[in-house]
Design a protein around this nucleic acid. Structure first.
Lengths: 239, 239
DNA sequence: TGTACATCAGTGAACGCGCGTTCACTGATGTAC
DNA sequence: TGTACATCAGTGAACGCGCGTTCACTGATGTAC
């Protein structure tokens, strides 16, 4: 009764001799589904096994422990993110435009793989962080750097690429994180559109800031900002 | 043996007749300390009681349950954040500058109250979210709106204030969140300085983007951006 | 072509522990008379 | 001014359950001879 209340999967047949790996795939898929449906706390070893239609200890045939299972799920999710970002790049040959597309792909992925994204980005509560997540973050940064570098080369931005990238990344990350954790805030009808807005905002801000950082000791007044930005806006709009 | 291994607080004397509230304060302080030292998983009812030097059930004399205790801790932290942001405002009468100062105060608070901040901003894992956190987020947004509104009034930004604010907030939130969860990334020597960088970046980006959004159908090329931004940067630097 | 044997792919039941929470009690402190 | 009584501020011990993990077993599938 107690155990059955979790179970959803039909009794599945046992795999043939060399096909043990099949169960591993099914477990991963079930775990991902559980995460999507109920968030991290829904990912219980018992639940994963039940969803596949297999006994609980069978999970340990393919994963050392629960953390190992979670790692595997994250690894898959991350591979998906990498693929989407690479695909997004092959749309435009204009560097700034390409950056925008990648940022949009990033947001798209995060919003559609909420829990995996959070699992990858936020340290696993209470556990010693597996270095998997750290590696993923580093790889992600490298990806983004590869998108920002052409902007620097094209003269849209100046300065240290990693620093520029981190700022843009932070903005995108904050946007999707806040959207996921506080959906009740006024994001408008289309979350993806808002994320794109933030992507453009951070790109433009980074480009402009990289030109004036450290130039003048006392920052310009609001009036000056308004005047100069008005001119810039007009020029950008009229082209 | 098992229970004692947690205990740190000396045996404290029992409060006088009307002074029962004293324990409540001590429990809150102990909980905050535990959070700071060991993160959310370190916040155990037993540990809080032991730290104060009181038996575990004594906690339930002042808090309905664990969630109630956490709520109270968050409420305090949030009050601190509100105070710091208000204080930060009283430094400059230039709207854009004031916004920068508030953003810096925001980052400062988040970096120094990491766990409380995350507790407030991220939904409590697995639990039905108490509306406290939701209310706090709303209040925070209102605070930030109050800082952005003068920028709109002064003509530095245009458009819907809440939308502008959300973008800037998202950037700041992402910055501190990423710093807290991935300290190994190359943030430079001074995290607060980087957070300020992101604050300026988002402010500038928002201001510029609010002038060109929806203006031209096809976005300008990287070359155009570079040229226009160069001119704007020169003008801002020479004032 | 049959038969013993290794091994693969699992299962049922239970262990064990961390941790929030409750129960029944206790000793000190003030108050009514 | 003493004494019975209410109540406040706690305590010690245990309950109970969720959940990861392990133990000892089992039946099907292929392989050696």
């Amino acid at each position: 009764m107690t155990e059955q209340s979790v179970s959803q999967g039909a009794r599945r047949g046992r795999a043939r001799r060399g096909e043990g790996e099949r169960l591993r795939e099914e477990l991963l898929a079930a775990a991902a589904t559980l995460l999507r449906e109920g968030g991290e706390p829904a990912l219980k070893v018992r639940a994963v096994a039940a969803k596949v239609g297999v006994s609980t200890p069978a999970v340990y045939l393919h994963f050392r422990d629960k953390a190992d299972l979670i790692d595997a799920v994250c690894l898959r999710a991350f591979a998906g993110l990498e693929r989407e970002m690479l695909d997004a790049a092959t749309g435009s040959d204009d560097p700034f435009q390409a950056l925008r597309l990648r940022a949009a792909a990033y947001a798209h992925f995060a919003l559609n793989h909420a829990v995996e994204y959070q699992l990858l980005m936020a340290p696993r509560s209470g556990q010693a962080r597996s270095d998997l997540a750290g590696d993923a973050a580093q790889a992600l940064l490298d990806h983004l750097v590869a998108a920002v570098q052409p902007c620097v080369d094209a003269g849209v931005m100046r300065g240290d690429v990693r620093e520029l990238t981190l700022g843009i990344w932070a903005a995108m990350h904050g946007c999707v994180t806040l959207m996921l954790s506080r959906p009740e805030l006024p994001w408008g009808r289309d979350p993806a559109a808002f994320a794109e807005h933030v992507g453009r905002m951070s790109g433009l801000g980074t480009a402009l800031l990289s030109r004036i950082e450290g130039v003048s000791e006392t920052p310009p007044s609001s009036k000056t900002f308004a005047r100069v930005l008005d001119a810039a806006g007009r020029k950008l709009g009229s082209t």
